[in-house]
Simulated assay, not measured.
Amino acid sequence: MDIRQLRYFCTIYEEKQITKAAKILHMAQPPLSHQLRQLEEELGVPLIIRDLKKWEVTEAGHRLYERAKKVLTFLEDTKKEITEIHNGMSGTLSIGTSSICMSYLTEHLNKFHKAYPNVYIKIYHGDTNYLEGLLQQKQIDVALLLLPVEESNYSIYPLTEDPFVVLAPRQWEHNFPEEFISLKDVTQYDLLLTKRTSGVGIYETILNQFHKAHLEPKVVLDSPDISTILTLVATGMGITIIPQSQVHQIYRDQFKVLQLDEPAFSTRPVLIWLTDHYQSSAAKKLIEYFK
C-alpha cells in the first residue's frame, strides 16, 4: 500500500464511481480499477462492492477512507510546513467571513498585507453554515462568523460584543423624533431580517427577544445577505435590526439609526479555526492580529 493508492481510493470513495474518479485523476478507468483490486488483495478484504446493480462501500472501506484522509492531510500539511521554512512567509491565506463580520476583518487586513506583502489573500463570503463547510473541507484557514456553530473541533477566539440597532429609511425620519425605539414600537413596522440558510443565528436571536416580551414582529422578508436587506430598507420597504458594526459611514445618509430601549441585546462575532489542522505561518500571524 502506498500514498498513490490511498489517493486513488479516496477519490473513488468521494466520487462514488470509478469513471468519474478516473477523469479527476487524469487516468484511464482500467488502470484505476486494477489499483483498487490490488489494494483489496493486499488488505485481504473487499473495500467497495461493485457490480451492475450495486455500488456499496464496506465497513472496511469506510474505515480505510477515514485513516487515508488523515494520512494524506498530514502529508499535505508537512509539505506546506517545509515549503514555508524554505520560502519564508508566502503562499495563500484563505479567509472566510460573513457579511456581518466583514468590518472586523478590514481593520486588520490592511496592516497584515503591509507586513506580509508576499502572502496572497483569498476571501470567501457566506453565512455561518457555509463557512463551517469550507472549514471542515479545509478550503479556508480561518473564519469570522457569528455563534452558534454546528461542529465542536474548533479553536474559538471571541471578538467584541456587538449591540443590535434598528435602521429605518431616512425618508421615515419624521416618524422617529427620538434616538431610541422600543421593541413594541418596532412591531408597528414591516421588518426585514437576515437569516442563515441553515441553523440558528441572528434571525432566531431577534425573534426570541420579541417573544420574551410577548410581542409578535411583522417580519415580511428574510435574506442571508445583509447588503440586500440594507438596499431594500433604503428604498422604504421596511425597517431592520442589525449589529451596530454594520452601520458604516457610507450608509449614514440613507438610514435613521435608532438604539433599542431596554432590554438591549447583542451578538458576539468569533474568529475560529480547526483545532486539529496544521495552521500556516500566515494564518497564525493573522490570528495574532486579532488578539
Rank of each mutant, 00 (worst) to 15 (best):
I12L: 07
Y13L: 08
E15K: 15
K16G: 04
K16N: 13
Q17M: 03
I18C: 08
T19K: 14
K20F: 10
A21N: 05
A22W: 00
A22E: 01
K23Q: 15
L25R: 11
M27T: 01
Q29E: 10
L32C: 05
L32M: 09
H34K: 11
Q35A: 14
Q35R: 06
L36G: 01
R37M: 08
Q38M: 14
L39A: 06
L39Q: 04
L39G: 04
L39S: 04
E40C: 13
E40L: 12
E40T: 11
E40V: 10
E41S: 15
G44C: 07
V45Y: 05
V45L: 07
L47W: 09
I48Y: 07
I49N: 14
I49Y: 15
D51H: 10
D51P: 07
L52A: 15
L52C: 12
L52W: 14
K53A: 13
K53W: 15
K54E: 10
W55T: 14
E56S: 11
T58N: 02
E59K: 07
G61A: 01
G61K: 02
G61M: 02
H62E: 13
E66C: 11
E66S: 13
A68Y: 12
K70F: 07
L72D: 12
E76L: 03
D77N: 06
K79P: 03
K79G: 03
K80S: 06
E81Y: 00
I82R: 02
T83K: 05
T83S: 07
T83E: 11
E84V: 05
E84P: 09
I85D: 07
G91D: 00
G91M: 02
L93V: 06
I95C: 06
G96V: 00
T97S: 14
T97W: 04
S98F: 12
S99H: 11
S99N: 11
S103F: 13
S103H: 12
Y104A: 09
Y104H: 14
T106A: 09
T106F: 08
E107F: 09
H108K: 12
L109E: 05
N110S: 15
N110Y: 14
K111Y: 13
K111P: 11
H113E: 09
H113A: 08
K114P: 08
A115T: 10
P117T: 05
P117F: 09
V119D: 01
K122G: 00
I123D: 00
I123R: 01
Y124M: 02
G126T: 00
G126M: 00
N129S: 15
N129G: 11
Y130M: 12
L131P: 05
E132M: 04
G133D: 01
G133S: 05
G133H: 02
L134F: 07
Q136F: 10
Q136E: 07
Q136W: 06
Q137R: 05
Q139Y: 09
V142L: 09
A143I: 01
L144S: 07
L145V: 08
L146W: 13
L146H: 14
L147H: 13
